[in-house]
Design a binder for these strands. Structure first.
Lengths: 339, 339
DNA sequence: CTGAAAGCGCTTACAG
DNA sequence: CTGAAAGCGCTTACAG
């Protein structure tokens, strides 16, 4: 049973290997009767075609890759990635495609080496890219390697060469957050972003700036690195500066938690003294006390869509872009909403 | 370059395909000079052997599988899994083995179908199994499918057929937790475990019972399902029953968070009225207020060891068992330690 | 609709 | 140490 092959099936049924193959793959070239007999026998024997033989003859691996390149500590605690991963895997499974997962450190060289190798070994048919940066070397690398890819979560860029990927309207999300704070009466806010080298962070920074400007609010910018500690440090620096900031917007949930710790440390109350918004929802935001107002972005859905785009790209070569829905602001105590 | 093959290399170098293959794989049968020339050329061309061709001729996939079968919601928020995953992937990468990740719901049928298929397609060379249960059908299934596996985190069972896997001394961990509570003066405690059908939960339950008995403490048991809500419900039921329980031990961090919510809801203070310990550490425990005393079990290390055992099993057929180190109790505010 | 055959790109006995 | 050849288990033109 574990050693059954297409030749074995053909022999048992008294037909040729080709017929078995056609039957299995839903190709024309076999009578319905034969097809049924093949399928039934395969089922009965619990037989599946060898993935490596199939991959070799089709020159298609039947798998796509995903490199998580971040501080391992961050990956483990960052719920956004897990949500994304779940969505991606689910969609891939439905498309009979396996997910190859690689976790590397922050060293970009390792990510590069992984793609180089995957392409060379023809181990994956395509990859999903995150955290698109300015002058990101990866798209050009993947093109050189002829490894199809989708770009996840970048801001829509007009005029650029069309690429497969999901785009997020970060300006819209920024407006949602800023409006919420404006409505609550805040006029001096701070925006603690992740690294500006990420295109999505730049889009968010501009979005916040623009919208706040329209409301006549002032924004102090601070660049951090998504870690809890960097969020805490940012909050300490901003709140001690005495600029009269009354609300902090953090680029992710971990930094928001750091912000809460900072406030507690210097004796400021949230939201009475300073309000707080997280640009990513998670259980952390829900459980914190006070609970933290957050923009829910539905990472599961995003992952699913990204994976579907990649599958379509591989199947049909269709290059398309999917706009992600706007984030939902979940109002909680940290901006004065009822608990 | 992307289309280079072993035949191409051989032709360029004026030698046979066999020599190239031997050179690449560190096999005897080529002169050192030839080997160097092959390796250098491969390097220069950025060439790697096709994984599917290699898999087909070696009948080895070069990948192992891992099925995460849990509530998707739970997976995304349960830090233990991410830590484990990181450890596993890191060790596999060092062993030049890919990780195939599949996420399925709680339906055991889906997990079964995945193994069936992976085995049939020879897509993976082995798998890592978690959450061993009573009468778990998976080991027998995998044996029938001839898919090697390691069992992660089960209690050591004497006299049973030897299997590859990691074992945890849950009784020792239980003692650590119970002793901590006893020292703090608690005499009536409750243990909110995960499902008892898991062998590790049963071992924990017995361990807590035994150790508490030795100290003359009483233990009320409650079975929950690892979710936040189930932890909350458990705490509500136990604390309202008025049995004079002064400390709660939860089987994971999410349930612990549920416990805190429950206490807040009914106006009990932690640790003054009721103390709390989590049988898994995480950022949630660290950030909660009060911060939650927890048993840190080092999932990253555990994952690494499990993966190494599997690689060894695949390489040499060596069946071995590795005892995981005892958990570290991180004392925090929820049991009266200083913040 | 069916069969014989070449090919996918490696590995590995087997002669030399 | 090297070369010619078979084999891994599929897919896919090509004749019939």
């Amino acid at each position: 049973m574990a050693k059954e092959t297409i030749a074995g099936l053909a022999q048992r049924l008294g037909i040729s290997k080709a017929s078995v193959s056609y039957a299995l793959n839903g190709q024309p070239g076999v009578s319905e009767l034969t097809r049924r007999r093949v399928l039934d026998l395969a089922d009965e024997l619990g037989w599946y075609p060898s993935s490596s033989a199939r991959a070799l003859s089709r020159s298609r691996a039947g798998a796509v890759g995903m490199v998580l390149s971040a501080d391992p500590l961050l990956i483990g605690t960052e719920p956004y990635y897990m949500g994304l991963l779940t969505g991606i895997e689910t969609a891939l499974a439905e498309g009979d495609t396996a997910l190859m997962l690689r976790m590397v450190g922050k060293d970009p060289e390792q990510e590069r080496a992984t793609y180089e190798r995957w392409a060379g070994e023809r181990k994956v048919d395509g990859v999903i890219l995150f955290d698109h940066r300015h002058d990101d070397p990866r798209p050009a690398l993947l093109e050189r390697l002829r490894l199809p890819f989708v770009l996840h979560g970048a801001p829509a860029t007009e005029g650029a060469a069309p690429r497969s990927g999901t785009t997020t309207d970060h300006a819209l999300d920024a407006a949602t957050i800023v409006d919420h704070l404006h409505r609550a009466g805040h006029r001096r806010i701070a925006h603690i972003s992740g690294p500006r080298s990420f295109l999505h962070e730049e889009a968010r920074i501009e979005g916040v700036q623009d919208r706040a400007g329209r409301h006549g609010m002032s924004v102090t910018r601070y660049e951090a690195d998504y870690s809890l500690d960097s969020g805490r440090d940012a909050a300490l620096a901003l709140l001690r500066a005495g600029e009269g900031i009354t609300a902090l917007v953090f680029g992710n949930d971990l930094m928001s938690m750091g912000g809460l710790l900072a406030m507690r440390a210097i004796g400021l109350r949230c939201p009475d003294d300073v309000a707080l918004v997280s640009w990513d929802d998670s259980l952390h935001c829900e459980l914190a006390s006070p609970s933290v107002t957050a923009l829910a972005r539905n990472p599961g859905l995003q992952g699913r869509v990204a994976a579907e785009l990649l599958l379509r790209l591989l199947d049909t070569g269709a290059v398309q872009t999917a706009r992600m829905p706007a984030g939902d602001l979940i109002a909680r105590s940290s901006t004065g909403a009822l608990p």
